[in-house]
Simulated scan of single mutants.
Amino acid sequence: MPFLTLSHITTYTYRHPVAFGEHRIMVRPRESHDQNVLDETLTISPQPSDVRWLQDVFGNSVAIATFDKRAKELVFDSRIRLQHNPAELQHVDIEDYARFYPFTYSSEDMPDLLRSIERQHHDPQRQIDTWARRFVGAAGRTDTLGMLSDMTAAIKREFTYVARAEKGTQSPIETLTRRKGTCRDYAMLMIEAVRALGFAARFVSGYVYSPTSREHRTGGGSTHAWVRVYLPGSGWVEFDPTNGIVGNRGLIRVAVARDIYQAVPISGTWAGFPGSFLDMTVSVDISVDPDIVADTGTQTALPLQA
């Protein structure tokens, strides 16, 4: 049960002082049975005139910051102390009726899962469908967890990971055609592929770290993206196609959403002279300290500092 110290700094720089509109910040990890925030601070410079917290439709923690000062630099500095208790793959327990594919979600679950089953991208030539069907056994009954694990491993094995700082995501068909992309491209490809097979899937934004010195995780140094698939009996199960892993070992959830555009870590507006924007940099650092036992009964409020 490791304890983690997480630093996430995002810096926007401008050629001239600019005015800042409302900014939406999603960097606080989600509280759950497998991850618990022990301490947190969020420092924003210049100091906002107001900050309020809310939970969005998916239960993600969102800070809304408004500003009354102009500046040439805008910095969001989030520091988190977290207890992480990741589930092991062998603890994925699937209901008997869903252990083999194909199956249909229960009538109780289906109304709440429908929007997460709907496809988000056009596939007129059924390229995603065809690629997804390659993981379905010819005999007609395919082990559900094995099929999803094989798809996760295939993306890791057959595609080339390419870091990309620019905003935006390739379409799943672009990723499939180019055979390369970022973690968010991989996540959207897998989401569309499993939805093509009738699974409910969601996009996850968060952080990735290497649990031990012997385990290397791709995608560190910035935010990370992966997939959750709903499996009856275990609920939402993590699949990280960038690293080819199943389960949340080394993964810290921050935002869960039906579509990638609902899980942007920081978004907002600015106003100033055209061409004022210079750069945006993101730095994420996570240190693992498995030996320190923290007092999990103490809750610390989130201070906002200049």
Rank of each mutant, 00 (worst) to 15 (best):
D289Y: 11
G59N: 11
I128E: 07
V37H: 00
P111T: 02
A271F: 15
R99F: 05
V229E: 07
A200C: 12
Q55H: 03
I80Y: 02
L231M: 06
R195D: 05
G198W: 02
H23T: 01
R217N: 08
D279I: 04
T296V: 14
Q47C: 04
R258G: 07
Y105A: 04
Y101D: 02
W131M: 06
T281Y: 00
P46I: 04
T10W: 06
P2H: 14
S149F: 11
Q170A: 10
Q35M: 09
E158Y: 14
I155M: 12
G181R: 02
R195I: 04
P290R: 12
S45V: 12
S222V: 08
S49L: 13
A139S: 15
E31Q: 13
S78Y: 10
D129G: 07
T104M: 14
R214M: 14
D185Q: 07
H121M: 10
E158I: 09
S78F: 09
T218V: 10
P48M: 08
L197W: 08
T152F: 06
R133M: 10
Y101V: 00
V282K: 00
I9S: 02
P303L: 07
Q47Y: 08
Q35Y: 11
T218P: 00
N36R: 12
M26I: 00
D285T: 15
T66L: 01
I173Q: 02
S222F: 15
G297W: 02
R202E: 07
I252P: 03
E215A: 06
R214N: 13
P102M: 03
T281P: 03
L145S: 06
L82C: 04
R178S: 08
R70F: 03
K69P: 03
I173V: 12
I266Q: 01
R30P: 09
R24L: 04
S222Q: 13
A163F: 13
A71H: 11
F273L: 09
R258M: 03
A263G: 06
A255M: 01
R214Q: 13
A263P: 07
Q83C: 10
V51I: 05
Y207I: 04
H23S: 04
M151S: 00
